[in-house]
Computed example of a mutant assay.
Amino acid sequence: MKSLRKLLFPFALLYGAVTWIRNQFYNSGILSSRSYDLPVICVGNLNTGGTGKSPMIEYLLKLVSPKYRTAALSRGYKRSTRGFKLLRGNESAAEAGDEPLQFKRNFGNALVAVDADRRNGIAELLKQEPEVILLDDAFQHRKVKAGLNILLTSYGDLYTEDFMLPAGNLREPTVGAERADIIVVTKCPLKLTSEEQERIWHKLRLRNYQKLFFTGISYDENPRNADGEADWEELSTEGFCLVTGIANPKPLLEHLKGKDFNYTHRKFPDHHNFTERELNELKEENLILTTEKDYVRLKDELPPDKLFYLPIKVTFIKGKEEFDKNILDYIKEKEV
């Protein structure tokens, strides 16, 4: 792996130079970014995938949507449709993208839309008169200037310890983190010590205006299926197949590690579109446990009585109240 990185390093330097110049054009005003009168909150990362953007968007939807007419705008990665699409909730994952469809299923009162062109997506959403817009995975979309930028970085893969693509997983040089107002280290151990938090704080080299938070992943006590909450006993007694099509299934595997379960694991790439052959093979399984994102893709393809998922949520190590206050204060300031 190290030798391959060395071979790709010149290409990483070139890619990094191109993205740095692009950012400089936006910073200097040569390329224009559009800002908006209503609150626009961007959730993104510097690394490609696996930082927990979807759970954070759902956390924000849960926080904001009961108080404000809230819209979430995503790209709709790997969807079969193009352009702007406002979701009703009855679309397939192929039409809408798995994560946006999950948002709409869990927050039916929110406006959820997909559009690769974030500026066009916002223009279309404004016709629905939202009070707050959440941008999913839009940190590199400089044509839109969000009022509040939340940058995520995974505990096991800090952006300061990564390389530019294709030698590593960085989409842009680490100096891009300076655009963030809030930085969240995700997927931390829930018992992360204060000493470890301080060590990471020094590694990330935050600016004075930036705030740092640490979160982990918590799983619901029991799995769910189409009929509602299920019981682990059914899965553990009969045995099951764990199916994951996410960037990093390690936290889920660690969670299951402490339980005495008999299961096999079929791992697929992130946002995987299951082939007919793969679906037929899965239909032969006795019971299937998957992630909520994968459940959205599989629920219309597999028998509902054998398909289960385990919901996850963001858990703050500390500072939840401060984080919530930061979000709500920003929204109130934009109302004035």
Rank of each mutant, 00 (worst) to 15 (best):
1 M>W: 04
2 K>P: 00
4 L>Y: 14
5 R>M: 14
5 R>F: 15
7 L>M: 12
10 P>M: 07
11 F>D: 11
18 V>I: 15
21 I>P: 01
23 N>E: 06
23 N>A: 04
24 Q>H: 15
26 Y>G: 00
30 I>D: 10
33 S>Y: 11
37 D>G: 11
39 P>S: 04
43 V>L: 04
45 N>P: 06
49 G>D: 06
52 G>N: 04
52 G>Q: 03
54 S>R: 05
55 P>A: 02
57 I>L: 08
58 E>L: 07
59 Y>H: 06
62 K>A: 09
69 R>S: 13
73 L>D: 04
73 L>K: 00
73 L>H: 02
76 G>D: 03
77 Y>G: 13
77 Y>F: 15
77 Y>R: 10
83 G>C: 08
86 L>S: 11
91 E>T: 01
91 E>R: 00
92 S>A: 14
93 A>I: 08
94 A>D: 13
97 G>A: 06
103 F>Q: 05
103 F>R: 03
104 K>Q: 07
107 F>N: 05
108 G>D: 11
109 N>S: 14
112 V>A: 10
116 A>T: 12
117 D>T: 06
118 R>Y: 06
119 R>L: 11
120 N>Y: 05
125 L>A: 07
127 K>T: 12
128 Q>R: 05
129 E>Y: 15
132 V>A: 08
133 I>E: 07
136 D>E: 06
139 F>M: 05
140 Q>T: 05
141 H>W: 09
142 R>N: 04
150 I>S: 03
151 L>S: 05
153 T>H: 02
155 Y>M: 12
158 L>A: 02
160 T>W: 10
162 D>K: 05
163 F>M: 10
169 N>G: 10
171 R>M: 10
173 P>E: 02
175 V>N: 09
176 G>A: 03
177 A>S: 14
179 R>F: 01
183 I>E: 02
191 K>Q: 12
194 S>Q: 11
195 E>T: 11
197 Q>H: 03
199 R>F: 03
200 I>P: 02
200 I>T: 02
201 W>L: 12
202 H>D: 11
202 H>E: 15
207 R>T: 01
208 N>P: 14
209 Y>S: 12
211 K>L: 03
212 L>V: 09
214 F>A: 12
217 I>E: 01
220 D>W: 14
221 E>N: 14
221 E>R: 12
227 D>K: 13
228 G>C: 04
229 E>C: 08
232 W>F: 10
233 E>L: 12
233 E>A: 13
234 E>S: 14
235 L>C: 04
239 G>D: 06
240 F>V: 10
241 C>K: 07
242 L>T: 09
242 L>I: 14
243 V>P: 01
246 I>Y: 15
246 I>D: 13
247 A>V: 02
248 N>M: 14
250 K>E: 07
250 K>P: 02
251 P>C: 01
253 L>R: 05
254 E>A: 01
256 L>E: 05
260 D>V: 14
263 Y>A: 08
264 T>N: 13
265 H>K: 06
270 D>C: 05
271 H>T: 03
275 T>F: 04
278 E>R: 11
278 E>N: 09
283 K>S: 04
286 N>C: 13
288 I>N: 01
290 T>W: 07
290 T>R: 03
293 K>M: 06
294 D>M: 07
295 Y>L: 07
303 P>C: 11
306 K>F: 15
307 L>S: 00
307 L>K: 00
308 F>H: 02
308 F>N: 01
313 K>G: 07
313 K>Q: 13
315 T>F: 11
315 T>L: 10
317 I>V: 12
321 E>L: 07
324 D>S: 02
331 I>L: 05
334 K>Q: 12
